[in-house]
Computed example of a mutant assay.
Amino acid sequence: MGSTIIGCGKSLPALEVENDELKALVDTNDEWITTRTGIKSRRIAVDETNADLGEEAARQALGWTEGGYAERRIEAGEIDLVICATVTPDVVVPSAAGLLRRRLGLDNAIAFDVNAACSGFIYGLTVAETMIAASASNVAGAAGRNPIKRALVVGAERLTRLTNWSDRNTCVLFGDGAGAAVLEWNEERAGILSSFIVNEDDITNALTCANAFDAPQPFDKDGISLEAAAAGDPALPRTDEEIGTHALVEAGRPRQVLYMDGPKVFKFAAEAMTTAVRQAVERAGITLDDVACIVPHQANERIIKYAAKKLGRPMDFFQLSIAHTGNSSAASVPMALADAYEQGRIQRGDKVIVVAFGGGFTSGAVVFEA
Protein backbone atom coordinates (compact mmCIF):
# COMPACT_ATOMS: atom_id res chain seq x y z
CA MET A 1 0.00 0.00 0.00
CA GLY A 2 1.17 3.52 -0.67
CA SER A 3 0.84 6.80 -2.54
CA THR A 4 0.88 5.97 -6.23
CA ILE A 5 1.49 8.29 -9.18
CA ILE A 6 -1.55 7.81 -11.42
CA GLY A 7 -1.16 10.79 -13.75
CA CYS A 8 1.46 13.15 -15.17
CA GLY A 9 1.29 16.14 -17.48
CA LYS A 10 3.38 18.96 -18.90
CA SER A 11 2.91 22.32 -20.54
CA LEU A 12 5.32 24.44 -22.56
CA PRO A 13 4.96 28.03 -23.79
CA ALA A 14 4.40 28.59 -27.52
CA LEU A 15 7.63 30.49 -28.20
CA GLU A 16 10.70 28.33 -28.84
CA VAL A 17 14.04 30.15 -29.02
CA GLU A 18 16.96 28.27 -30.55
CA ASN A 19 20.57 28.74 -29.48
CA ASP A 20 21.74 30.72 -32.49
CA GLU A 21 18.91 33.23 -32.00
CA LEU A 22 20.56 34.30 -28.74
CA LYS A 23 23.39 35.82 -30.81
CA ALA A 24 21.22 38.93 -30.99
CA LEU A 25 21.55 39.32 -27.20
CA VAL A 26 24.99 37.99 -26.19
CA ASP A 27 28.23 36.67 -27.67
CA THR A 28 27.31 33.00 -28.07
CA ASN A 29 26.42 30.33 -30.62
CA ASP A 30 24.84 26.92 -30.89
CA GLU A 31 28.13 25.02 -30.64
CA TRP A 32 29.19 26.88 -27.48
CA ILE A 33 25.88 26.25 -25.72
CA THR A 34 25.31 22.68 -26.86
CA THR A 35 28.74 21.36 -25.92
CA ARG A 36 28.57 22.92 -22.44
CA THR A 37 24.94 22.20 -21.55
CA GLY A 38 23.21 19.85 -23.98
CA ILE A 39 20.61 22.55 -24.62
CA LYS A 40 19.51 23.27 -28.21
CA SER A 41 16.50 25.50 -27.52
CA ARG A 42 14.22 26.64 -24.73
CA ARG A 43 10.60 27.79 -24.38
CA ILE A 44 9.86 31.32 -23.21
CA ALA A 45 6.52 32.42 -21.79
CA VAL A 46 5.52 35.70 -23.40
CA ASP A 47 1.72 35.77 -22.99
CA GLU A 48 1.44 32.67 -20.80
CA THR A 49 1.32 33.13 -17.02
CA ASN A 50 2.63 30.73 -14.41
CA ALA A 51 -0.96 29.74 -13.71
CA ASP A 52 -1.67 29.14 -17.41
CA LEU A 53 1.22 26.69 -17.64
CA GLY A 54 0.38 24.97 -14.36
CA GLU A 55 -3.28 24.63 -15.27
CA GLU A 56 -2.60 22.87 -18.59
CA ALA A 57 -0.10 20.47 -17.00
CA ALA A 58 -2.61 19.71 -14.24
CA ARG A 59 -5.45 19.08 -16.71
CA GLN A 60 -3.33 16.48 -18.48
CA ALA A 61 -2.34 14.78 -15.22
CA LEU A 62 -5.99 14.70 -14.13
CA GLY A 63 -6.99 13.11 -17.46
CA TRP A 64 -9.09 16.09 -18.52
CA THR A 65 -7.21 16.87 -21.74
CA GLU A 66 -5.06 14.98 -24.22
CA GLY A 67 -1.34 14.59 -23.60
CA GLY A 68 0.62 13.33 -20.66
CA TYR A 69 -0.29 10.12 -18.86
CA ALA A 70 -3.41 9.39 -16.85
CA GLU A 71 -4.64 6.01 -15.61
CA ARG A 72 -8.15 7.41 -15.39
CA ARG A 73 -10.01 10.70 -15.23
CA ILE A 74 -9.90 12.23 -11.77
CA GLU A 75 -12.93 14.36 -10.96
CA ALA A 76 -12.42 17.77 -9.34
CA GLY A 77 -14.04 16.70 -6.09
CA GLU A 78 -11.58 13.82 -5.68
CA ILE A 79 -8.53 16.07 -5.16
CA ASP A 80 -7.89 16.81 -1.48
CA LEU A 81 -4.55 18.62 -1.70
CA VAL A 82 -2.79 20.93 -4.18
CA ILE A 83 0.89 21.77 -3.79
CA CYS A 84 2.62 24.06 -6.26
CA ALA A 85 6.41 24.24 -6.33
CA THR A 86 7.61 27.51 -7.83
CA VAL A 87 10.01 30.42 -7.42
CA THR A 88 8.13 32.52 -9.98
CA PRO A 89 4.48 32.78 -8.90
CA ASP A 90 2.32 35.30 -10.73
CA VAL A 91 1.29 36.95 -7.46
CA VAL A 92 2.22 36.81 -3.79
CA VAL A 93 -1.36 36.32 -2.61
CA PRO A 94 -3.18 34.09 -3.38
CA SER A 95 -0.65 31.29 -3.69
CA ALA A 96 0.06 29.69 -7.06
CA ALA A 97 -1.61 26.55 -5.70
CA GLY A 98 -4.59 28.64 -4.64
CA LEU A 99 -4.97 30.03 -8.16
CA LEU A 100 -4.83 26.52 -9.60
CA ARG A 101 -7.42 25.32 -7.07
CA ARG A 102 -9.76 28.10 -8.18
CA ARG A 103 -9.18 27.64 -11.91
CA LEU A 104 -9.65 23.88 -11.77
CA GLY A 105 -12.62 23.94 -9.40
CA LEU A 106 -10.91 21.78 -6.79
CA ASP A 107 -13.28 22.88 -4.04
CA ASN A 108 -12.33 20.14 -1.57
CA ALA A 109 -8.59 20.77 -1.72
CA ILE A 110 -6.14 22.35 0.69
CA ALA A 111 -3.72 24.45 -1.37
CA PHE A 112 -0.27 25.91 -0.68
CA ASP A 113 3.11 26.55 -2.31
CA VAL A 114 6.63 25.32 -1.63
CA ASN A 115 9.87 27.01 -2.63
CA ALA A 116 12.88 24.70 -2.75
CA ALA A 117 14.14 26.10 -6.06
CA CYS A 118 14.83 23.36 -8.62
CA SER A 119 14.18 20.65 -5.99
CA GLY A 120 10.68 21.99 -5.38
CA PHE A 121 8.79 19.15 -7.05
CA ILE A 122 10.73 16.55 -5.04
CA TYR A 123 9.93 18.42 -1.82
CA GLY A 124 6.30 18.78 -2.89
CA LEU A 125 5.99 15.05 -3.61
CA THR A 126 7.51 14.26 -0.22
CA VAL A 127 5.12 16.58 1.63
CA ALA A 128 2.10 15.26 -0.28
CA GLU A 129 3.05 11.61 0.30
CA THR A 130 3.60 12.25 4.01
CA MET A 131 0.22 13.94 4.39
CA ILE A 132 -1.57 11.19 2.48
CA ALA A 133 0.16 8.47 4.52
CA ALA A 134 -0.71 10.24 7.79
CA SER A 135 -4.34 10.49 6.71
CA ALA A 136 -4.42 6.78 5.84
CA SER A 137 -2.76 5.66 9.06
CA ASN A 138 -4.34 4.75 12.37
CA VAL A 139 -1.84 6.60 14.51
CA ALA A 140 -3.11 8.70 17.39
CA GLY A 141 -4.82 11.84 16.15
CA ALA A 142 -5.13 10.69 12.54
CA ALA A 143 -8.90 10.74 12.72
CA GLY A 144 -8.81 14.45 13.48
CA ARG A 145 -6.80 15.37 10.38
CA ASN A 146 -8.08 16.51 7.01
CA PRO A 147 -8.79 13.34 5.01
CA ILE A 148 -6.33 13.34 2.11
CA LYS A 149 -6.48 10.50 -0.38
CA ARG A 150 -5.40 12.27 -3.57
CA ALA A 151 -3.01 15.15 -4.22
CA LEU A 152 -2.08 17.24 -7.22
CA VAL A 153 1.59 18.29 -7.15
CA VAL A 154 2.63 20.91 -9.72
CA GLY A 155 5.95 22.48 -10.63
CA ALA A 156 5.46 25.66 -12.67
CA GLU A 157 7.98 28.33 -13.63
CA ARG A 158 8.48 31.47 -15.71
CA LEU A 159 12.19 31.42 -14.93
CA THR A 160 13.05 33.57 -17.94
CA ARG A 161 11.49 36.51 -16.09
CA LEU A 162 14.35 36.25 -13.59
CA THR A 163 17.02 35.82 -16.26
CA ASN A 164 19.64 38.46 -16.99
CA TRP A 165 19.62 38.43 -20.79
CA SER A 166 22.91 40.32 -20.96
CA ASP A 167 24.81 37.57 -19.08
CA ARG A 168 25.80 34.85 -21.54
CA ASN A 169 26.87 32.47 -18.77
CA THR A 170 23.34 32.23 -17.37
CA CYS A 171 20.86 33.38 -20.00
CA VAL A 172 21.51 30.36 -22.22
CA LEU A 173 20.44 27.95 -19.47
CA PHE A 174 16.88 28.74 -18.52
CA GLY A 175 13.41 28.09 -19.88
CA ASP A 176 9.77 28.12 -18.83
CA GLY A 177 7.17 25.40 -18.40
CA ALA A 178 5.12 23.34 -15.99
CA GLY A 179 4.70 19.73 -14.99
CA ALA A 180 2.21 17.99 -12.72
CA ALA A 181 1.56 14.65 -11.07
CA VAL A 182 -1.44 13.15 -9.29
CA LEU A 183 -0.86 10.97 -6.22
CA GLU A 184 -3.49 8.53 -4.94
CA TRP A 185 -3.49 6.24 -1.90
CA ASN A 186 -3.82 2.65 -3.06
CA GLU A 187 -4.10 -0.33 -0.73
CA GLU A 188 -2.97 -2.71 -3.48
CA ARG A 189 0.10 -0.88 -4.87
CA ALA A 190 3.41 0.11 -3.30
CA GLY A 191 3.64 3.58 -4.81
CA ILE A 192 6.30 5.79 -3.23
CA LEU A 193 8.89 3.58 -1.53
CA SER A 194 11.19 6.22 -0.05
CA SER A 195 12.24 9.82 -0.13
CA PHE A 196 15.35 11.74 0.81
CA ILE A 197 15.51 15.52 1.08
CA VAL A 198 18.31 17.62 2.54
CA ASN A 199 19.47 21.22 2.75
CA GLU A 200 23.03 22.54 2.69
CA ASP A 201 23.98 26.17 3.32
CA ASP A 202 25.06 28.07 0.22
CA ILE A 203 27.77 29.88 2.17
CA THR A 204 29.44 31.35 -0.92
CA ASN A 205 26.17 32.63 -2.45
CA ALA A 206 26.72 30.55 -5.56
CA LEU A 207 23.10 30.86 -6.67
CA THR A 208 20.89 33.73 -5.60
CA CYS A 209 18.00 35.95 -6.67
CA ALA A 210 16.81 38.91 -4.62
CA ASN A 211 13.32 40.34 -4.32
CA ALA A 212 12.81 43.89 -5.57
CA PHE A 213 10.22 45.52 -3.31
CA ASP A 214 9.27 48.82 -4.94
CA ALA A 215 6.11 50.05 -3.17
CA PRO A 216 6.69 53.53 -1.63
CA GLN A 217 7.30 53.35 2.13
CA PRO A 218 6.60 56.69 3.93
CA PHE A 219 8.61 55.80 7.02
CA ASP A 220 12.10 56.27 8.39
CA LYS A 221 13.55 55.27 11.76
CA ASP A 222 11.81 58.18 13.47
CA GLY A 223 8.34 57.45 12.11
CA ILE A 224 6.29 58.79 9.21
CA SER A 225 8.33 60.60 6.58
CA LEU A 226 6.94 61.65 3.21
CA GLU A 227 10.49 62.18 1.95
CA ALA A 228 11.35 58.56 2.71
CA ALA A 229 8.67 57.35 0.29
CA ALA A 230 10.85 58.41 -2.64
CA ALA A 231 14.06 56.92 -1.25
CA GLY A 232 13.27 53.22 -1.67
CA ASP A 233 13.49 50.40 0.84
CA PRO A 234 16.47 51.09 3.16
CA ALA A 235 16.64 47.38 4.09
CA LEU A 236 17.41 46.22 0.54
CA PRO A 237 21.17 46.94 0.74
CA ARG A 238 21.42 44.68 3.80
CA THR A 239 19.76 41.86 1.88
CA ASP A 240 22.07 42.51 -1.08
CA GLU A 241 25.04 42.20 1.27
CA GLU A 242 23.76 38.95 2.74
CA ILE A 243 23.44 37.26 -0.65
CA GLY A 244 26.60 38.82 -2.07
CA THR A 245 25.06 41.02 -4.78
CA HIS A 246 25.57 44.46 -3.23
CA ALA A 247 28.51 45.42 -5.45
CA LEU A 248 26.70 44.25 -8.58
CA VAL A 249 23.56 46.23 -7.75
CA GLU A 250 25.64 49.28 -6.83
CA ALA A 251 27.30 49.00 -10.24
CA GLY A 252 23.93 49.17 -11.94
CA ARG A 253 23.20 45.48 -12.49
CA PRO A 254 19.54 44.44 -12.02
CA ARG A 255 18.56 43.26 -8.56
CA GLN A 256 15.85 40.69 -9.23
CA VAL A 257 17.73 38.30 -11.55
CA LEU A 258 19.51 35.01 -11.06
CA TYR A 259 23.20 35.27 -10.16
CA MET A 260 25.16 32.06 -10.40
CA ASP A 261 28.72 30.88 -9.94
CA GLY A 262 28.60 28.05 -12.47
CA PRO A 263 31.59 25.96 -11.32
CA LYS A 264 30.47 26.03 -7.66
CA VAL A 265 26.92 25.06 -8.56
CA PHE A 266 28.18 22.28 -10.84
CA LYS A 267 30.35 20.84 -8.06
CA PHE A 268 27.49 20.88 -5.57
CA ALA A 269 24.94 19.51 -8.04
CA ALA A 270 27.00 16.58 -9.25
CA GLU A 271 27.72 15.34 -5.73
CA ALA A 272 24.24 16.12 -4.41
CA MET A 273 22.51 14.15 -7.15
CA THR A 274 24.54 11.00 -6.65
CA THR A 275 24.20 11.22 -2.86
CA ALA A 276 20.42 11.69 -3.07
CA VAL A 277 20.01 8.70 -5.41
CA ARG A 278 22.09 6.44 -3.18
CA GLN A 279 20.31 7.53 -0.01
CA ALA A 280 16.84 7.11 -1.50
CA VAL A 281 17.70 3.68 -2.92
CA GLU A 282 19.07 2.54 0.44
CA ARG A 283 15.98 3.79 2.27
CA ALA A 284 13.78 1.91 -0.21
CA GLY A 285 15.64 -1.32 0.54
CA ILE A 286 16.55 -1.92 -3.09
CA THR A 287 19.57 -1.52 -5.36
CA LEU A 288 20.08 0.41 -8.57
CA ASP A 289 19.81 -2.92 -10.40
CA ASP A 290 16.13 -2.93 -9.41
CA VAL A 291 15.49 0.49 -10.99
CA ALA A 292 14.13 0.90 -14.52
CA CYS A 293 15.19 4.52 -15.00
CA ILE A 294 16.19 7.74 -13.28
CA VAL A 295 14.40 11.01 -14.07
CA PRO A 296 16.81 13.79 -13.06
CA HIS A 297 16.53 17.56 -12.88
CA GLN A 298 17.32 18.87 -16.35
CA ALA A 299 19.89 21.55 -15.49
CA ASN A 300 22.93 20.56 -17.54
CA GLU A 301 23.61 17.38 -19.51
CA ARG A 302 27.19 17.35 -18.22
CA ILE A 303 25.94 17.08 -14.63
CA ILE A 304 23.81 14.08 -15.58
CA LYS A 305 26.80 12.49 -17.36
CA TYR A 306 28.92 13.00 -14.24
CA ALA A 307 26.25 11.39 -12.07
CA ALA A 308 25.90 8.49 -14.50
CA LYS A 309 29.63 7.80 -14.24
CA LYS A 310 29.61 8.03 -10.43
CA LEU A 311 26.60 5.70 -10.21
CA GLY A 312 28.01 3.27 -12.77
CA ARG A 313 25.06 3.57 -15.11
CA PRO A 314 24.87 4.29 -18.88
CA MET A 315 23.30 7.53 -20.08
CA ASP A 316 20.32 5.70 -21.54
CA PHE A 317 19.39 4.83 -17.95
CA PHE A 318 18.49 8.52 -17.49
CA GLN A 319 15.56 10.44 -18.96
CA LEU A 320 16.97 13.34 -20.99
CA SER A 321 14.57 16.15 -21.91
CA ILE A 322 16.87 19.16 -21.57
CA ALA A 323 17.65 19.66 -25.28
CA HIS A 324 14.48 21.61 -26.00
CA THR A 325 13.45 22.87 -22.57
CA GLY A 326 16.56 24.14 -20.81
CA ASN A 327 16.56 24.40 -17.03
CA SER A 328 12.98 25.09 -15.95
CA SER A 329 13.63 24.85 -12.19
CA ALA A 330 10.77 23.20 -10.27
CA ALA A 331 9.00 22.34 -13.54
CA SER A 332 11.97 20.36 -14.82
CA VAL A 333 11.48 17.00 -13.09
CA PRO A 334 7.70 16.65 -13.57
CA MET A 335 8.00 17.64 -17.24
CA ALA A 336 10.73 15.02 -17.77
CA LEU A 337 8.62 12.49 -15.84
CA ALA A 338 5.69 13.14 -18.18
CA ASP A 339 8.05 12.64 -21.14
CA ALA A 340 9.25 9.32 -19.71
CA TYR A 341 5.67 8.06 -19.38
CA GLU A 342 4.70 9.27 -22.87
CA GLN A 343 7.78 7.63 -24.38
CA GLY A 344 6.89 4.31 -22.76
CA ARG A 345 9.98 4.25 -20.56
CA ILE A 346 7.91 3.62 -17.42
CA GLN A 347 5.64 0.58 -17.21
CA ARG A 348 3.40 -0.67 -14.41
CA GLY A 349 5.54 -2.21 -11.68
CA ASP A 350 8.76 -0.42 -12.70
CA LYS A 351 10.80 1.19 -9.96
CA VAL A 352 11.73 4.78 -10.84
CA ILE A 353 13.84 7.48 -9.20
CA VAL A 354 13.15 11.20 -9.54
CA VAL A 355 16.02 13.38 -8.31
CA ALA A 356 16.84 17.08 -8.20
CA PHE A 357 19.15 19.72 -6.77
CA GLY A 358 18.68 23.45 -6.50
CA GLY A 359 19.54 26.79 -5.00
CA GLY A 360 19.60 27.15 -1.28
CA PHE A 361 21.21 24.56 -1.51
CA THR A 362 18.49 21.90 -1.73
CA SER A 363 18.51 18.36 -3.07
CA GLY A 364 16.49 15.19 -2.85
CA ALA A 365 15.18 12.05 -4.49
CA VAL A 366 12.04 9.93 -4.44
CA VAL A 367 11.83 6.22 -5.32
CA PHE A 368 8.45 4.96 -6.48
CA GLU A 369 6.92 1.89 -8.04
CA ALA A 370 4.77 2.74 -11.04
Rank of each mutant, 00 (worst) to 15 (best):
Asn327His: 12
Val333Glu: 13
Thr239Asp: 03
Leu258Met: 15
Val277Asp: 13
Ala206Val: 05
Gly177Lys: 03
Thr287Glu: 10
Gly7Arg: 02
Pro216Val: 12
Arg72Phe: 06
Asp20Trp: 07
Leu288Trp: 12
Lys221Pro: 02
Ala210Ile: 05
Phe357Ser: 02
Ala151Cys: 06
Val92Ala: 12
Arg253Ile: 01
Pro254Leu: 05
Ser41Glu: 11
Thr163Ala: 13
Asn115Gln: 12
Gln343Thr: 07
Phe112Ser: 09
Pro234Glu: 13
Ala180Leu: 05
Gly98Arg: 02
Thr160Trp: 00
Glu301Phe: 04
Gly2Asp: 11
Glu56His: 04
Ala276Glu: 02
Ala330Asn: 06
Thr245Gly: 09
Ala180Tyr: 07
Ala51Arg: 00
Asp289Phe: 07
Leu311Cys: 09
Arg168Pro: 04
Glu21Gln: 10
Val198Phe: 02
Ser137Ala: 13
Asp289Thr: 02
Thr126Tyr: 01
Val154Ala: 10
Val354Cys: 15
Cys118Arg: 05
Glu369Arg: 08
Val367Ile: 14
Val91Asp: 11
Val114Asp: 04
Gly144Trp: 07
Asp316Ala: 04
Gly54Gln: 08
Ala76Glu: 12
Gly223Cys: 13
Val291Ala: 05
Thr362Tyr: 07
Asp30Ala: 06
Leu248Ile: 05
Phe121Cys: 08
Leu320Lys: 04
Ile197Lys: 00
Trp64Pro: 02
Glu250Arg: 12
Val265Lys: 00
Asp47Glu: 15
Ile83Gly: 01
Asp202Arg: 07
Lys23Ser: 14
Val366Ile: 13
Val295Lys: 11
Thr204Asn: 00
Thr163Val: 15
Lys10Phe: 01
Ala269Ser: 13
Ala229Gly: 03
Ile122Trp: 08
Asp52Met: 03
Asp289Met: 03
Phe368Tyr: 15
Asp222Ile: 02
Gly191Asp: 13
Val355Tyr: 13
Ala235Arg: 08
Ala292Asn: 10
Ala212Tyr: 10
Ile33Pro: 09
Lys305Arg: 15
Ala143Thr: 09
Phe112His: 06
Ile83Gln: 05
Val265Ser: 04
Leu106Gly: 06
Ala231Cys: 14
Gly359Met: 11
Arg255Gln: 13
Gly54Trp: 01
Ala292Tyr: 05
